[in-house]
Design a protein around this nucleic acid. Structure first.
Lengths: 220, 220
DNA sequence: GTCAAGAATCTGAGATCTCAGATAGAACGA
DNA sequence: TCGTTCTATCTGAGATCTCAGATTCTTGAC
């Protein structure tokens, strides 16, 4: 990859953004390791900003600084999965409702465009694209509200289960995934808070619910 | 302060811990600035681990890397306050309920000890001690559950409103604060989930509710 | 006395150096 | 051929150097 060119102070955030995207869209395999040097080499910077970006990701639970001299993408455990699921179910429906008053026609149009892309990705079994657009769909909604702290918390959750969801999706054919987003869009259009809560909840359960307990790795 | 002595890899976390405690207990004034050099000098290390600790605090919203060359403790705004309050009300009651099955007699005893300390701090108008023990009370409960992600999210919230709560408490006499913790303890003892939810919600509303909108700074 | 221009200082950020611990692979002995 | 040990390499972490931008203080002109 080309060197990250950014005028002072932005190198770090650029690197963080690049890595964050990889996590959210599941391009980081659970159990795989990272090194500051290799990422720095790949992105054409020194270790420094990479260290800071990885430090932040570690704080958010996306990576784990394993005892000594090893940065790994943590494997999922039943415990952690349930923990994450519970947090998502608590926060995301409310974040969507909080955004209800701020979704305008332009935003709705954008959401439908994204949903279309999701449909195509599902048909083509394009997991990469699906995860990217699914992320876009949810955060286009959440970030419409002025509750930036809540969006931030939710982002942390996605960062953690992204790598794992990818493993799950890869192990099945994407046509099995039902597109629940239409419900959410119509609830947003109708400004129906309760219906919106239900739609988001259904989407979360649908995406994460198809995971059997035996889907989990050894958790080592 | 004495130099932070720690064998490899722990200097950074030590510094983070020290700073985190200061935020949670409100020893960082909103609007005040920090510099990596001054903190490094104070703690007897180089700038490096301080940078990483501050970077993490910035990611958690506790400090703000203001445009260029300035790290400040952000002032509170009405918007942000409501955002934080909403997140607390969503997460904390559930975190307490999640801990319900894991609170044993020893833990209850510890909670009552903390509550005693809170009573004394309130009587002595000791804001420092009050905030410290109030933090201990809540997180003794939350961290009893295996939902570490949820506790983590809540920690982020406390980090953000800590500095601000201190300002509020300082501007009033602490005897005005009602100690709502007894209710929570008895709900824990009775294993009554609904009562516990109510107690935590009451405690949050009680602590944050006495804040008039005019309590907020200019937000500059 | 007031205000503006310039210099000195401060500060965050990136790069580089170094070190210690950990891992993996090679080599040697049984 | 297998197992143990030793070494070479890798990696995270702290320290130090440097730079550019920003702030602040001084100074000088009006």
């Amino acid at each position: 990859m080309a060197a990250v060119v950014a005028p002072d102070g932005l190198v770090r955030s650029s690197i963080y953004e690049v890595l964050r995207q990889r996590f959210v869209t599941g391009r980081m395999a659970p159990g795989s390791t990272l090194s500051t040097r290799s990422v720095a080499l790949e992105l054409g910077t020194s270790q420094m900003p990479v260290r800071e970006a990885l430090g932040r990701l570690a704080a958010e639970g996306a990576v784990e600084i394993r005892s000594k001299r090893r940065i790994v993408v943590p494997r999922m455990t039943v415990q952690r999965f349930e923990d994450l699921l519970r947090c998502r179910e608590l926060l995301e429906p409310e974040a969507a409702v909080a955004a209800l008053d701020y979704i305008d026609a332009a935003c709705l149009a954008r959401l439908e465009l994204i949903d279309e892309a999701i449909g195509i990705a599902l048909a083509n079994n394009d997991v990469d694209r699906y995860m990217q657009e699914n992320y876009n769909f949810h955060f286009t909604i959440y970030r419409s509200s002025p509750c930036s702290t809540m969006s931030q918390l939710i982002e942390t959750l996605w960062l953690q289960f992204g790598p794992y969801m990818r493993v799950v999706y890869d192990s099945m054919h994407t046509v099995l995934l039902v597109d629940q987003h239409q419900l959410a869009v119509s609830a947003l259009r109708a400004k129906d808070a309760e219906k919106l809560r239900g739609a988001i909840r259904a989407d979360i359960r649908d995406g994460m619910g198809l995971i059997g307990v035996n889907s989990f790795g050894t958790g080592s």
